[in-house]
């Protein structure tokens, strides 16, 4: 990072905002919070999202969802692959931000960014394969054509991992949108800025506005509004408690899960042991936001 040294050109700093419905608003509450780098120095003021921002994000996600799900899986795959192409071009910026935020030396930060890009590519490739792997014809005992197909559950709220600000974030968001869901994600509270930069990538690739909506701020403040929101279909608590959060007791996650029960959201509980975001993720995170639809049709002349 270029320091503001005397004699050097003064750098233009970026205002870190929310990403809702394809636009970058400040919080409607007018609040911001101080983001510090891994060494505790001031880095930036980030927008501190409010209840209203969370609700706006859900509206944007809901509005975008039918159109996103209706795109051919192949096209969704291409759109998401395009994100990886744009990510690759901004690798240096991500490596700098991830390094500064997570306190990683440059080579390690670059590895993490490489892994995040490859992870995005991996999930992009799933878009037109999930149906064939998870769906199929069912051999029922009667003259019926019987076919099961996975479909997206709808709007998914995600509390992103707190430690892994980019690779972890990509690993929880990409599988959800690959299958046609839309998402409202609360970025890592301590290292939110790589997430905002990821939002800039999404905004300048071909992903329609509203497919991914990003909130920065206090998890304990925002997450309850998403957990109790009746237009949210699923809730990922990965960063909300337990091993990948700042709140290891898991009390908040339990409360959020209880709130989510009101409209029977599909809930993904926080991991018991910290997730290794560099490991092969398997299909787990693709499955949990899918509904299986089974169609029956008689067979006969």
């Amino acid at each position: 990072m270029t320091a503001d040294r005397p004699g050097d050109r003064l750098t233009v700093r970026k205002t870190f905002k929310l990403y809702i419905g394809g636009a970058f608003p400040r919080s409607e509450s007018g609040r911001s919070f101080v983001v510090r780098d891994a060494e505790g120095r001031f880095w930036a003021n980030a927008a501190q999202a409010s209840r209203k921002d969370a609700r706006d994000a859900v509206v944007a996600a809901r509005t975008a969802q039918p159109g996103w799900a209706a795109r051919a899986p192949y096209l969704r795959g291409q759109v998401l692959y395009r994100v990886a192409e744009v990510l690759e071009g901004r690798k240096a910026q991500f490596a700098a931000e991830v390094g500064r935020g997570e306190g990683l030396a440059a080579p390690r930060a670059e590895e993490v960014v490489d892994a995040a890009i490859d992870r995005w590519v991996w999930y992009a490739g799933w878009a037109d394969k999930v149906g064939q792997v998870l769906g199929g014809a069912n051999p029922v005992a009667g003259p019926y054509f019987n076919l099961s197909t996975p479909e997206p559950t709808g709007v998914v709220a995600v509390v992103a991992p707190q430690e892994s600000s980019l690779l972890g974030l990509v690993s929880v968001v990409a599988p959800v949108v690959a299958t046609g869901n839309t998402v409202v994600v609360i970025a890592s509270e301590r290292v939110p800025l790589p997430a905002v930069t990821l939002a800039e990538v999404l905004a300048t690739s071909d992903v329609p506005g509203g497919v991914v909506n990003l909130l920065t701020g206090r998890v304990a403040e925002i997450a309850p509004w998403l957990a109790s929101h009746l237009d949210v279909d699923a809730l990922d608590l990965t960063g909300a408690g337990g091993a990948d959060s700042d709140e290891p007791t898991g009390q908040l996650a339990g409360e959020l899960e209880a709130a989510a029960a009101e409209n029977l959201k599909r809930v993904r509980r926080p991991p018991v042991v910290p997730e290794d975001w560099t490991a092969d993720p398997g299909m787990d995170r693709l499955r949990w936001t899918l509904e299986i639809k089974t169609v029956w049709h008689p067979v006969g002349v």
Binding site: Y74, G77, Y81, W122, G125, W126, D128, K129, V133
Partner: peptide, 18 residues
Amino acid sequence: AAWFFHYAGWADKLEHAG
């Protein structure tokens, strides 16, 4: 083009292909 794009995505998912 679609054939290459589709099978590109399979290259790292072969263990899920059954």
